[in-house]
Amino acid sequence: MLKESKFELGALLITPGARKAISYHEIFQAISRHAAGDWGDVSEEGAKLNDQALKESGRLFSVYESSNGIRFYIITEANRNTTTVLLPDEY
């Protein structure tokens, strides 16, 4: 279930590594959290930067961990045209 979105996600992209390593269910749960402004495991400073980026149309960056311990990122570009799910080594 998607939470209320605070911004447009644009086109959703999932890299091959993320698609292989993380279940779609967990990916879409994380996308829902990201869209609602829950930035996951970013630092306190990173969360503040994201909150500022919401107001100023900047790039949004979240970090999550799957149930099998794989960390992954979700990035929404400043223009809100795309949101990408990727592994750290695909960054």
Rank of each mutant, 00 (worst) to 15 (best):
D41W: 06
D41Q: 15
S57V: 05
E77G: 03
F72N: 04
E56R: 07
E44N: 10
V42A: 01
E26G: 11
N79K: 12
R80A: 07
F61I: 06
L54I: 02
S5T: 07
L87Y: 09
A18V: 14
E45C: 06
A11K: 14
H25P: 05
D51K: 05
D38M: 04
E8D: 14
I14S: 04
E65I: 10
I70H: 07
N68W: 08
L60S: 08
Y64A: 11
D38I: 01
T76M: 00
Y73T: 01
M1E: 10
F72T: 00
E56W: 01
Y73D: 03
Q29A: 15
L87M: 12
T84Y: 00
E26T: 09
A36M: 06
R80W: 04
L86K: 07
L9I: 10
A47P: 00
N79P: 03
R59I: 12
R19P: 05
I75A: 01
E90L: 06
I27K: 13
I31T: 12
A53D: 08
K55R: 15
R19T: 14
F72C: 02
A21L: 14
G69P: 08
E77P: 06
Y64F: 15
G40D: 04
L12R: 14
S67K: 08
A35E: 08
E4H: 10
E77T: 14
V42I: 05
L60I: 10
D89P: 04
L86C: 08
W39F: 05
E77H: 13
L12H: 12
V42P: 00
N79I: 05
Y91H: 08
L12G: 10
S32W: 07
R59H: 12
S5F: 04
E8W: 08
I27T: 12
A78I: 14
S43N: 10
A11P: 01
T15W: 09
H34V: 03
V63D: 00
H25I: 12
S32H: 12
A53F: 10
L2A: 15
A35P: 09
Y91N: 00
I22L: 12
K55G: 02
L9D: 07
T82K: 13
E44F: 04
T82H: 08
L54G: 05
L86A: 06
L9M: 13
R59A: 11
G10E: 13
S32M: 13
G69A: 09
D38V: 02
L2C: 05
K48P: 01
L86G: 04
G46S: 06
F72A: 01
G46R: 03
I14A: 07
I14E: 09
R19N: 15
R80N: 06
E4V: 11
